[in-house]
Design a protein around this nucleic acid. Structure first.
Lengths: 338, 338
DNA sequence: TCCGCACAAGATAGCGCTATCCTTAACTCT
DNA sequence: AGAGTTAAGGATAGCGCTATCTTGTGCGGA
């Protein structure tokens, strides 16, 4: 008996479960993994033995023996962006329900760090990966291709590729914001951006293109490589007011910049939206409570996480996805600030 | 050669490194783990062989063979609270630098879910744990004691216990806020709380006790079991104004409640701090930018994470901590709102 | 010179599972 | 009835490492 216990933790092992159920270890293993060739009565007996012993499989042994784990690597650019947290929580819920464990990594928007993470996490022999965007380094892309593991990219749509992705068109979102501001009679535009990842730039491009097509002057740009934050929004707004006092509409690449600008505008006595209209992005918690309530683009990050996780599970089940790039859209939330 | 490759990933194994370095696998293993009995020349040769092959150890095999991993379980109440994200990022930095990998879990402030996580994560045979607070279930506490793994509790200080902890006195923080508000001439107090974990209640208790000792009326309490959020702050502030229009100072258990209340006050035309003073908690990003700038208690969460991780590493190195409960204080940040 | 000792390096075994055969028994079909 | 077929369950081996024991080597002291 004691011999069958895990030497370090004292936890019961599969051998002990098998003994109690009166079957061989391999049958117990199969029963617990729902391998269909096992007699239902035996499955019951094994399951019950496992329950009564409080048996939990040893993931290290499982991974080593099967050369495959129940782990799904999830990589997000940063933990400090609430956007990705919500996406991750949705992923986690879907995966856990099917007995998979997410392994979370983040890389501060640094593609080289992302590559390093991929290299490290592949040694954990995950069964699949969920990645944010398509801006991996060439070396990372090679690693991903070579390992042959199923993966789904999130937030951005893969164009001209068979690689599964779930997201929305960042470009179209920028366009929608432009139309909205134009329709409200705005004429002199600015784009305030931080953390210049691909998606921010796609938004910017869509915004600028729409302005151009509408015959407007291109938007003034204030771009910062720093992470977007409320404090940065304050700074950028002050700079903008100093250099371009006649701007009458701002599109912020993220709501926290808009929050900061909103605070600064109040302090400076600049009336929003009378003198200047604000449109944020992501519709983060608080956007609807801000004074004035902030117009923003609601991004379906929880839905993206959920769908991406489900797609990955489908791939693991051997299904094929009819449509690799799945666009689940976005929603403009017009509020007081514009 | 091919025989020594990992069957699933095609990655080189320790056997291949050993062969290239001209030593036995076990010597290679020892060299890479810096076991001191290996000849420095051999260590060099092995290290170089490993580098040239791009060798990375297989964590599953390592864990299985040694019954111990390089994994540290880190449990936080929720991902959606920026406080814990900052703490985790600091932990991660310290652990990674020493070759340890954090395994992050969160439990939505649910002690039973925390217990389940502990049970699951122990099967990963971590080498230690970092936990938030001291409000584990009795069963979880038993699990933790039985497994005998080193652990450090964060954010709260363990009283009358030898279990290592790093944090500050939540109670004293509440007291400090009370003194501050009293010193500013405030007389009618409210405490708005959400997500009623132990630490929130300790803050409340410290606040109320100080008021009592100063001969003040006890603070009116608005407590919600829901997670704290900007939207909830709005609601609670409206309710408070409706039921107790003469309150002249509010202590919020978290800054986001104060943010919401601040927005709502602006909308309702209630002047802050003239008619009512606000004090938040945690000094989250944006507190210093809010209009009016928010008085808050700066909690050293990054420092807590850093120190806790370092203490755990010290325990793993076999050191003993002279002082189990380490108080690293807090700082009241008086600003415009009070 | 020989013995014993310290210590570096290797041989061996096994961690707790699962992949892959292999056995056995029940059944079908001619 | 006998060969062939199918399927359930077990025996065996091995995943890639490391704990532990064993061996070999060099050295000092009697």
């Amino acid at each position: 008996m004691a011999k069958t216990r895990n030497r370090a933790t004292g936890l019961p092992t599969l051998a002990e479960v098998a003994e109690r159920a009166g079957v061989s270890p391999i049958t117990a293993s199969r029963a617990l993994r729902s391998v269909p060739t096992v007699d239902p009565d035996l499955v019951d007996r094994v399951r019950q033995a496992a329950r009564s012993l409080g048996y939990v499989p040893n993931p290290a042994a499982r991974t080593l023996a099967s050369a495959r784990s129940r782990t799904v690597v999830v990589l997000i650019p940063a933990l400090s962006n609430h956007l990705f947290i919500e996406m991750f929580e949705a992923i986690e819920t879907v995966l856990r329900a099917r007995g998979f464990e997410p392994l979370l990594g983040h890389y501060q928007y640094d593609a080289l760090e992302e590559e390093r993470l991929i290299r490290t996490f592949l040694t954990y022999q995950p069964c699949g990966l969920l990645l944010t965007g398509f801006d991996q380094t060439p070396a990372a892309t090679r690693l991903l291709t070579d390992c042959g593991l199923p993966r789904v990219h999130m937030m951005e749509l893969g164009e001209e590729t068979e690689i599964p992705s779930v997201g929305f068109s960042q470009d179209e979102a920028g366009t929608a914001v432009a139309w909205h501001l134009i329709s409200r009679g705005r004429r002199r535009f600015a784009f305030l951006g931080a953390q210049l990842d691909r998606r921010v730039l796609q938004r910017r491009d869509g915004f600028q293109r729409a302005l151009l097509e509408a015959g407007m002057q291109p938007a003034v740009e204030f771009l910062s490589p720093d992470p977007s934050s409320i404090a940065l929004g304050c700074q950028q707004f002050r700079s903008l007011r100093r250099d371009y006092p006649d701007i009458d509409a701002i599109f912020f690449c993220n709501d926290d910049l808009a929050f900061g600008a909103s605070f600064e505008a109040a302090r400076m006595g600049v009336p929003v939206p009378r003198q200047i209209a604000f449109v944020g992005f992501n519709d983060l918690p608080g956007a609807n409570e801000l004074v004035p309530r902030l117009t923003s683009v609601r991004t379906p990050r929880a839905e993206i996480g959920r769908v991406a996780a489900r797609r990955l599970l489908a791939l693991l089940d051997g299904e094929t996805l009819s449509q690799p790039a799945l666009d689940i859209g976005f929603e403009l939330m017009p509020r007081q600030s514009s």
